[in-house]
Design a protein around this nucleic acid. Structure first.
Length: 1034
RNA sequence: GCUGAAGUGGUGGAAUUGGUAGACACGUUGGACUUAAAAUCCAAUGUCCCCUGGGACGUACGGGUUCAAGUCCCGUCUUCAGUACCA
């Protein structure tokens, strides 16, 4: 009887499903444990071997906890709203719901065949109306809340309204928009309803406001800060620009301090906490007010260095700052306008790529120094960001390098206020070991004291105060997309109104196309039935609603919101929905369920969500706690990031190196050849026709390369590496020092440019996509690629390329994806599970190498043979041997420790060692082999269940108690002592463990090998650590 | 630049408090079985040197502490990830 894993695995998966083995109960005497995976977005490509890594780890932990007597909740679901399904819908006209459904079926099939112990009865899908009803409900709650800074929590807007009408807003300490004016209760009560609504909007935790947003024209939507990576959209890599738009926002900034403090209470990795701390970006300093000369205006700035107030020699405003137009003088107007226009044209990416160029313009206006009353010129410069602080800075060139560079460039004075510090070369940014000078009342103080004193004096003048600033911005919550949660919002005279809870969910309407309308409205603008009838409280046809109708003739029918919610809306609270039946309609989860499960004990997922999902969920949970909807302050107690499984991509290097951007080398010294060779490796090539390249910017070119799945390295990698080479040898490349230079060089001097080509079909590594294998040079070589005048890819047999391998992120676009289906078919789910764990530490990124799976598969086959051979079951009731008991108990201890420490890779090798030992011992004892199956079952549940039942036990093994470790079986009577000389181990000696130091020394010193080692010398010292080591120093 | 993590054989990776570096696998080589292959089993496998048995060197590099350092301390380099005109 051999190991037929396919049949065994299918049988047990069927058994688990039919018997609902892993269904969690909300009532139990056992302690609870909640293990959660970050739920997947069901993409069309299905799972690759990287996806299940975290699921396998959490599954092992969940199964282990069941063996340990916990009531385990281990659910799974789908984050099923999102861009890819919508993009696919735009291209094919297929409804995203259908695509999503198909993809979910694929995911489910793939997940099921790996044997996870998920409780599928609690499955959630963020795109199902039963689910997003509650996402909408939470949105309404946010709208109905404001943040009270006095008691540091969110409260109902009703309390705000009653305070307004009884005492006005003068004493209210709220987190709200900056431009709130003070009003009395009489004034409030006298305001028309619409004005009251406008005021309340400035206090609500989700609010509609015109803000500067990241607009992505290619995607046709706005993006949140965390959806932008390196100045381009995270999805698709499209360019992003700043634009003012009226959008829904979430007042997450109100929670900045609590989000920061909360990090100390949770068990997450330091790096992840650090990312969140950076993202929140707390800085302590002061706000200072400067009067503008000859104007009524003031400039507010934020500074972390109030101690340097006497070092201020000018002011700088962001080009977008409101004041700029008001204070610019006639003479300077032309220059300032030109500068503003120039900066507005630059994309975020350009601005980021080029931080070294100093630019700015003088407004002609002056501000007054609060203490010296000196006139300070007011400049604008794009190194000051409109989005941070107040969009204005007090420039202290002696203390800040950016101010220093700006002052040097525009010839502004650089007063020095640091005692004994030389600032002729650069600014002195440090706060340490320096005293302030030339600063009147601050003279002689250190920076810390000077800061406090300066703030005190500013407060006396009424021109400043201590202030804490956060980098964390309010999160834009509107998306101009179809496939997301609709807002439960309609508009009366342009003022947003919430739809009452009992009419939720507001279902996503049907549209005939998933694109924006011709008028530029979001896709929901195409829906025919998308207006709110306040008489019937239903969604009705748009025909009944005419926005141009007067207030009297609207008939109670109003337009509905056209935006949808962003991807993170649904994922910010889904962990609560799992707490009971996901179809429940009376509440998002019952109070009992919330009280019982509390929050997630163990959360496993990728670190790419550090500043998105993981921050937003924490924000929503804190809000829900404030309003009494849940009773926990943090969603995830412990969090582990699984590392990425990397794929191996193949690419080609150019071998013969004829024409190059480096010009021709006349002499061919070995030295030069070496460098050329090195350079050619750095910049392996494909050839691009000059005609094709002409007129294209580097950016456009790189977009083209991306489209063709070719990777360019010009910008950063190549240039930096080339630069380092240049430093080694000046003959190399006097051409390439700046990006612009390369562009020029490429465009004018040559008709070939060198870039790296990669991506071939990794499923058949040697069948290089688009390339022919070169016969002469063997299979590791391939012919060249040309890119023709029209961007077509042409093969050539003139040049020869070496095929290389590089390990990188697994992705469909890189042709390096390994599908788990094939692995499961060939080796079985248990092999896949063991192998993914065996690859290395969970948190670490590691390359996938399919050939290694034979190792764990071989282990399972050997294990099978330990229990069953051609004659059937080998296991009997024989007394276990001492060695077998030792093997078992040392394995129990190691596996238990490993699981508790999430060190799954080392337990797999422990199983192998145990299995090898038991085989060598010819162990057939049930007393050993039966508990061994329980140890293995979290890792390889199918084979464990099968052998468990073949041993005559009732299924399922999944709730059998974990074997108890007993120290007594490991007690040894002797120790194989390593005998070292000067710390180097020379030989070993078996000695009884209870032997004392003196006896050990006598025996060791008398040993012939010791005498040989010492060669007549007398040792200076003999170190003996009983039970550990003997070291002879001589 | 800043923050975080990490550098160990041909490869993935082990090594509990400082105590026998390289567990467990992959790969490679040799052998057994076989007409042959697959599968399976056995042996060897850090590098170098005399090759019976040993010896020297070895955990990115340079120092230090210690009887003893992959592990602790100081400095340097490299890689990966995140982040960045954040005032």
């Amino acid at each position: 009887m051999s190991y037929h894993f396919n049949d065994i695995e299918a049988n047990w998966q069927k058994y688990w499903a039919e018997n609902q083995t892993f269904k969690a109960s909300n009532t139990s005497d056992k302690p609870k444990y909640y293990v959660l995976d970050m739920f997947p977005y069901p993409s069309g490509a299905g799972l690759h071997v990287g996806h299940p890594l975290g699921y396998i780890a959490s599954d092992i932990y969940a199964r282990y906890k069941r063996h340990k007597g916990f009531n385990v909740l281990h659910p799974q679901g789908y984050d099923s709203f999102g861009l890819p399904a919508e993009q696919y819908a735009i291209q094919t006209g297929q409804h995203p719901a259908i695509t999503t459904d198909t993809n979910i079926k694929t995911y489910r099939r793939q997940l099921d065949q790996i044997g996870f112990s998920f409780d599928w009865s609690r499955e959630v899908r963020t795109s199902s109306p039963e689910y997003y009803k509650w996402t909408q409900w939470i949105f309404i709650q946010l709208f109905e809340s404001w943040y009270n800074k006095d008691n540091n929590q969110a409260e109902s807007v009703d309390t705000l309204i009653s305070m307004f009408s009884s005492e006005g807003n003068a004493n209210i300490n709220a987190d709200c928009d900056d431009d709130i004016t003070i009003f009395s209760s009489e004034e409030w009560n006298g305001y028309p309803s619409e004005e009251q609504q406008d005021i309340l909007l400035k206090y609500r935790l989700t609010y509609l406001a015109e803000t500067e947003v990241n607009w992505c024209p290619a995607l046709g939507t706005v993006l949140a800060n965390d959806e932008i990576v390196n100045g381009v959209s995270e999805r698709g890599g499209h360019s992003v620009m700043r634009k003012k738009m009226t959008q829904w926002s979430m007042r997450i900034s109100a929670y900045a301090e609590r989000l920061l403090q909360g990090l100390d209470t949770i068990d997450w990795t330091d790096s992840l906490k650090e990312s969140q701390r950076n993202w929140i970006g707390k800085s302590v300093g002061a706000s200072v007010t400067f009067d503008v000369n000859d104007h009524d205006e003031i400039i507010d700035v934020f500074t972390t260095r109030p101690d340097t107030i006497y070092g201020v020699s000018f002011m700088t405003l962001a080009p977008e700052h409101d004041l700029v137009s008001k204070i610019t003088t006639e003479d300077q107007k032309a220059e300032v306008d030109a500068y503003i226009q120039a900066t507005a044209k630059r994309s975020e990416r350009d601005r980021m790529a080029d931080v070294k160029t100093i630019s700015g313009a003088f407004t002609g206006a002056y501000a007054e120094h609060p203490f010296t009353k000196q006139s300070l010129p007011i400049w604008i410069g794009d190194y000051v960001l409109a989005g941070y602080g107040t969009g204005a800075v007090m420039s202290v060139p002696c203390g800040d390098q950016r101010d220093y560079d700006f002052a040097t460039h525009f010839n502004i004075s650089i007063p020095n206020i640091f005692e004994g510090v030389d600032i002729s070369e650069e600014a002195y940014g440090s706060k340490d070991n320096v005293k302030i000078t030339n600063s009147d009342f601050l003279d002689g103080l250190n920076c810390k004291k000077a800061s406090k004193t300066a703030i005190y004096e500013l407060e006396k003048l009424g021109q400043g105060e201590g202030k804490t600033n956060y980098r964390l911005r309010d999160a834009v919550f509107s998306r101009q997309r179809y496939w997301g949660e609709p807002f439960p919002v309609y508009y009366v005279n342009g003022k947003p109104q919430m739809i009452a809870k009992e009419y939720l969910p507001i279902r996503l309407p049907e549209v005939e196309k998933y694109l924006p309308t011709e008028e530029g409205e979001p896709p929901l603008g195409r829906a025919d039935v998308w207006a709110w009838d306040t008489n019937t409280n239903t969604v009705v046809s748009n025909d009944l609603c005419h926005s141009e109708q007067s207030e009297e003739s609207h008939n109670g029918v109003y337009p509905l919101e056209l935006n949808t919610m962003p991807g993170w809306a649904g994922s910010s609270w889904y962990f609560f929905r799992y707490m009971e039946d996901a179809m429940r309609d009376e509440a998002f989860a019952s109070e009992d369920a919330l009280n019982y499960w509390e929050n997630v004990d163990l959360y496993i997922g990728g670190s790419e969500h550090a500043t998105g999902h993981l921050l937003y969920s924490r924000f929503w949970v804190k809000f829900m706690k404030d309003r009494g909807f849940v009773n926990v302050e943090e969603p995830f107690k412990k969090l582990i990031n699984q590392g990425m499984i990397l794929g191996t991509s193949a690419f080609v290097y150019r071998v013969n190196f004829s024409t190059s951007i480096f010009g021709t080398f006349e002499s061919k010294s070995e030295e030069e050849k070496k460098y050329r060779n090195e350079v050619s490796k750095l910049i392996p090539s494909i050839f691009v026709s000059k005609n094709f390249f002409d007129g294209k910017s580097l950016l456009e070119f790189s977009d083209f390369m991306k489209e063709k799945h070719l990777k360019t390295y010009q910008n950063k990698d190549i240039l930096e590496k080339v630069k380092s080479l240049k430093e080694k040898d000046s003959r190399i490349i006097s051409i390439n020092t700046h990006v612009s230079n390369v562009t020029d060089t490429l465009a004018s001097n040559i008709n070939k440019i060198n870039v790296k080509v990669e991506y071939v079909n990794a499923s058949d590594e040697l069948d290089i996509k688009g390339l022919k294998q070169d016969k002469e040079f063997g299979e590791d070589y391939a012919s060249a690629i040309f890119i023709g005048n029209n961007g077509e890819i042409i093969e050539s047999d003139n040049d020869v390329y070496k095929v290389g391998r590089e390990v990188e992120k697994m992705s469909k676009s890189k042709y390096n994806v390994v599908n788990p289906d094939q692995i499961v078919k060939d080796y079985g789910a248990d092999s896949l599970r063991l192998y993914e764990m065996f690859l290395g530490p969970l948190e670490q990124a590691k390359p996938w190498n399919t050939s290694g799976i034979t190792g764990v598969h071989g282990f399972l086959k050997k294990l099978w043979k330990l229990y069953i051979d051609d004659n059937g079951l080998k296991v009997n009731d024989a007394e276990p041997s001492k060695e077998a008991l030792k093997t078992l108990h040392k394995t129990i201890k190691k596996v238990e420790d490993d699981i508790e420490n999430f060190s799954f890779n080392t337990s797999v090798s422990t199983f192998m060692i145990a299995s090898n030992e038991l085989t060598a011992q010819k162990c057939t004892s049930k007393a050993i082999l039966e508990p061994f199956l329980v140890l293995l079952s979290p890792y390889a549940p199918h084979i464990a269940e099968e052998l468990w039942s073949r041993l005559g036990n009732d299924p399922s093994i999944s709730t059998v108690p974990f074997p108890k470790f007993e120290e007594k079986y490991l007690v040894e009577s002797s120790k194989n002592y390593p005998i070292s000389f000067n710390g180097k181990m020379r030989f070993t000696l078996e000695l009884p463990l209870d032997m004392n130091k003196d006896d050990i020394e006598k025996i060791v010193m008398a040993h012939e090998k010791t005498i040989a080692q010492l060669d007549g010398r007398t040792p200076k010292k003999v170190i003996i650590v009983p039970g550990k080591i003997v070291n002879i120093v001589g």
